[in-house]
Simulated assay, not measured.
Amino acid sequence: MKTVGIIGGSGYTGGELLRLVLNHPALELNFVYSTTRPGFAISDTHPDLLGTTSMNFTDQVNLEVDVVFLCLGHGNSSKFLEQKRFSDQTIIIDLSNDFRLSSDSEFMGRKFIYGLPELNKEAIEQTNAIANPGCFATAIQLALLPLAKENKLSNSVHINATTGSTGAGVGLSATAHFSWRNNNVSWYKPFTHQHLGEINETIETLQGSKPQIHFLPHRGDFTRGIFATAYTSYQGTLEEAKELYKNYYANDPFTHVSEQEISLKQVINSNNCFIHLHLHEGTLLVTSVIDNLIKGASGQAIQNLNLIFGWEEKLGLNLKGSTF
């Protein structure tokens, strides 16, 4: 059993990670660090964990745990690691954006590997530090990787993606309020979303050139999941495109190409990404759906950890989805 510490376990991402760690057959939860809830029962914040754990949040950190997950706000992981020096043997998996770009990947003697298994599996298996991708970035990159690998993103790419309210975190804001969000849809950060940095870097590295990517994110009136559509010019048949995608993801247990049209509920509460392809007059439409809290965050973090330890990639991630 490998011991695990979680830094910041009171939010949506931290709560999802807690559920996965507590039910993982090879992991033992050692502590959950919180500056706002030390001494309070974890199940008070995450009521669904009543009967699963009797642990409390703590303001103490065990620097010798085998694994530490950082579920902190963007910009806070690097500050925390400067204050708390974990053992060189401790694996660090950061779920913020502090180390995702190559210019930020080297920190205090560690080289953080960008943790998208469908892109960097071999490098992930050899590292002790992971920069977990963003949720939008995960859905969008999985939609584009096969095209970039074959240098087929020669024209601009247009992307629309809608996320649930959990993507905004637990903090209060006007647009997260039930009365505003219910029966409502809106866009935000048009063409400037922070996940574009990691998306552009991945595509440019894989393809050798960077197409112009136009990304318009939307807020949806549901709690979890991302429904993304990307379209670009494509020279080839639909069957050729399907073969390209199926070959690329042939050894990836969580990413699947569907012959049928897909919907968001198919992946909720799972670590899956489902992809569908549609060709219309030389334009390829790629639809990608994920659960933003699992494949887009905590599930992918566990997937990365499984790879690092040489475990079966799906260990602890055989989750039950619910379509209805």
Rank of each mutant, 00 (worst) to 15 (best):
A139P: 14
L153E: 01
A161M: 04
K152I: 00
P146C: 03
L147R: 11
T163A: 13
A168P: 08
G167W: 00
L144V: 01
T163R: 05
L153M: 11
G164S: 05
N160A: 10
S165T: 14
V157T: 05
L145Q: 01
N155Q: 14
E150S: 12
S165M: 12
S165P: 06
N155T: 15
T162N: 07
P146V: 02
T163L: 11
Q141V: 12
Q141N: 15
A168Q: 13
A161V: 05
A161K: 06
L144C: 07
L145W: 01
I140K: 10
Q141S: 14
T166H: 13
L142D: 00
L144A: 07
G164I: 10
A139I: 15
L145E: 04
Q141Y: 09
N151T: 09
V157S: 02
P146L: 06
V157W: 07
N155S: 15
A148I: 02
E150C: 05
G164M: 04
E150H: 14
S154C: 11
L144P: 05
E150N: 15
G164F: 06
N155V: 08
A161I: 08
N160K: 10
T166K: 13
A143N: 06
A161Q: 09
S156W: 00
A148P: 00
I140C: 13
I159R: 00
T162R: 11
L142P: 01
N160H: 12
N160I: 05
G164C: 09
L144M: 08
T166N: 10
A143G: 15
L153G: 03
E150F: 12
P146E: 09
H158L: 14
H158W: 14
